[in-house]
Design a protein around this nucleic acid. Structure first.
Length: 573
RNA sequence: GGCCCCUUGGUCAAGCGGUUAAGACAUCGCCCUUUCACGGCGGAGACAUGGGUUCGAUUCCCGUAGGGGUCACCA
């Protein structure tokens, strides 16, 4: 590939130096006419110096536009950006891209800030509320940076690298149609860039006549030349050079994304631009902008979006169509934020899973995350897998943590659960069943599962409920009543340890003529009506109304004798 | 349509010229003093396709097909 020349002069090269200076002067006059009251870019260059950071430190950012809820993809980007910044002792900042007033949404910024906060991903710098920010490289809200963009736009005009364009949107539309009809590339470029060729005098005149205009970048690119770009994630990508004279300042005086990106990420000294891969095809433009502005270009890492399977088609998770695209969706379901982060990390670096298995109790911050190990193609979002990760995450919480988190969730989402949890001491006993040992129970995947998994443990709920007892093998009234009566009268003792308790159920089974061992029953099925397991099931069903529960010994310990007796009475009728 | 990217089991994915092609989730079976969950063991299941290059291609090159992205005074 041919190396690109480093500078482009837009004044005819045949002119002598004096003439050239005169022409430059006129560019200056044009620039002064358009932006009379902005500072020289030197001011900003000095105000926002290179950051003083350790070797290898990476500066990243999350730069959303405040257009409503936070997308899971945005969270994903932030997680990656923050992780890599923290790992290198760099900086992660939040910049709000609100240059499109039409799309503004109320509380947009607050939503973003709060979301990051709940995920324990607050930025080191940038917006921390709707109006407040921290850090020395602000403002971090683009609408407050209008003067800055205009300074740089003015500089571009002075250099002959940008010009006012007087084409109306309608003319733009016409141009596009013409190009489509002629089957050529659409856009404002080359011979189609009408306003590019006006003389300075003509431009000045139009402006003085009050014609509306935007500022366009005068692209030095040629479509027939290729540029090479090495993306941190995607690897080598070749593109044709950009030759579009894109708008850099809109008629409302605010910049377009592209220009704001170049100016901001330069001034904020971003080293790595981590963003969604929908931007990949803008890289030639962005690189050119950095070049023409005289900025050092950042490294780019384009993240593949999270996809969804839609009737056999893969597509990006959509804000509009997919509720699961919003991070609030998971909050409402009660998926712990740690689970979501682990799941996303899983997608980001598949080695995370192995690491997690080997470092069960480590903090996710200790995982050696690597940007360039990220996948180049988009992953299908897998709710089942998320919930599996979540189950494991929750299984590692202490009963106290489960209690606190479930309660917090319940307070905003489930009144009945909130009431159940009022008795903290009792609730903790329940959450402690089969928890904290080597093989903790993994039956809660989200806080919305909690109520169903504990409700039968509360007497005032259970004893007053209308319950259908799902008895299994032993299902006749007589035998059931006999088992329940005998168990209470003869066998049950609150003081028993687990083995004794276990043996006593065997005794009971024996007394009733059932097999005391399941194996024995299986060997001689014709000798017995049922086995000890079936007897257990009767007790379990009478006690809980369910066939599937955690360890029955522990359940009995938590319920206590009074409750057990009451439950058996209710069951025998 | 132009340009760009991608394609390993149902899903997420290791792999970087020679492997019995890892692992996880899901699924199926067995085991784990009585359920369920957990755990253990095992099964089934993949390199889109056609050409090259090579002694040898999942791996490199080209084409085809499929998927995705992008072509705004939106970001």
């Amino acid at each position: 590939m041919k190396k690109r020349s480093l500078s482009y002069l837009y004044v005819p090269l045949k002119l002598n130096e004096k003439e050239r200076n005169e022409l430059k002067m006129t560019y200056k006059e044009l620039a002064d006419l358009i932006f009379p009251n902005v500072k020289d870019i030197k001011y900003y260059e000095e105000k926002y110096p290179e950051r003083n950071l350790p070797e290898g430190a990476v500066v990243t950012r999350f730069a959303p536009s405040p257009t409503g809820f936070v997308h899971i993809g945005g969270l994903y980007q932030s997680l990656v950006a923050k992780t890599i910044a923290n790992k290198t002792k760099g900086v992660f900042f939040l910049r709000v891209e609100d240059t499109d007033q039409k799309r503004e949404v109320e509380n947009g910024i607050t939503d973003i800030v709060n979301s990051l906060k709940t995920f324990d991903m607050a930025p080191d710098e940038g917006m921390i509320s709707d109006t407040e920010e921290i850090g020395d490289y602000g403002p971090y809200k683009q609408s407050l940076r209008k003067d800055i963009y205009q300074s740089y736009a003015k500089y571009m005009i002075e250099m002959g690298k940008a010009y006012p364009c007087f084409c109306t949107p309608e003319e733009g539309e016409e141009l596009r149609k013409k190009q489509e009809a002629a089957k050529v590339r659409t856009g404002y470029y080359g011979v189609w860039a009408k306003c590019r060729n006006y003389s300075i005098d003509e431009m000045v005149e139009k402006i003085k006549n009050g014609e509306e205009y935007v500022i366009r970048f005068k692209s030095p690119g040629r479509e027939d030349r290729k540029i090479k770009h090495k993306d941190v994630i995607k690897g080598n990508v070749d593109f044709p050079e950009n030759d579009q004279d894109i708008v850099i300042i809109k008629s409302d005086g605010l910049p377009t994304y592209h220009f704001a990106h170049a100016v901001d990420d330069h001034l904020m000294r971003t080293t790595h631009v981590i963003r969604s891969d929908e931007w990949l095809s803008s890289v030639p433009l962005h690189l050119q902008l950095f070049q023409e502005l005289g900025f050092k270009a950042p490294k780019y890492a384009h993240i593949s979006p999270i996809m969804k399977n839609d009737n056999g088609n893969k597509r990006k998770l959509s804000k509009r169509k997919d509720p699961e695209a919003a991070v609030s969706y998971y909050e409402e379901m009660g998926v712990p934020d740690l689970a979501i982060k682990e799941y996303l990390l899983n997608i980001a670096n598949s080695s995370f899973e192995n690491w997690r298995r080997q470092n069960k109790d480590a903090k996710i911050e200790d995982f050696d995350f690597s940007l360039n190990k990220m996948s180049v193609s988009g992953a299908l979002f897998d709710m089942v897998k998320l919930l599996d990760v979540s189950k494991i995450v929750i299984s590692k919480f202490s009963a106290e943590e489960v209690y606190e988190k479930a309660l917090k969730w319940a307070k905003t989402h489930d009144e009945e659960l909130t009431k159940l949890l009022e008795d903290k001491e009792y609730s903790l006993k329940i959450f402690n069943i089969e928890r904290g040992n080597q093989k903790p129970r993994k039956d809660i995947a989200k806080w919305s599962d909690v109520k169903d998994s504990i409700i039968y443990m509360y007497d005032d709920k259970f004893l007053n409920a209308n319950i259908e007892y799902p008895y299994q093998v032993i299902n006749n009234k007589e035998d059931i009543n006999k088992i329940l009566d005998l168990y209470i009268e003869k066998y049950y003792n609150e003081e028993d340890d687990k083995q004794t308790w276990f043996d006593k159920i065997k005794e009971l089974a024996g007394e009733m003529g059932y097999a005391k061992e399941v194996k024995e029953f299986k060997q001689n099925p014709e000798m017995y009506k049922a086995h000890v397991g079936d007897v257990s099931t009767v007790l379990r069903v009478a006690l809980t109304g369910r066939t599937n529960t955690p360890d029955m010994y522990e359940i009995m310990q938590v319920l206590g004798k009074d409750s057990i007796i009451k439950r058996f009475q209710k069951a025998r009728i």
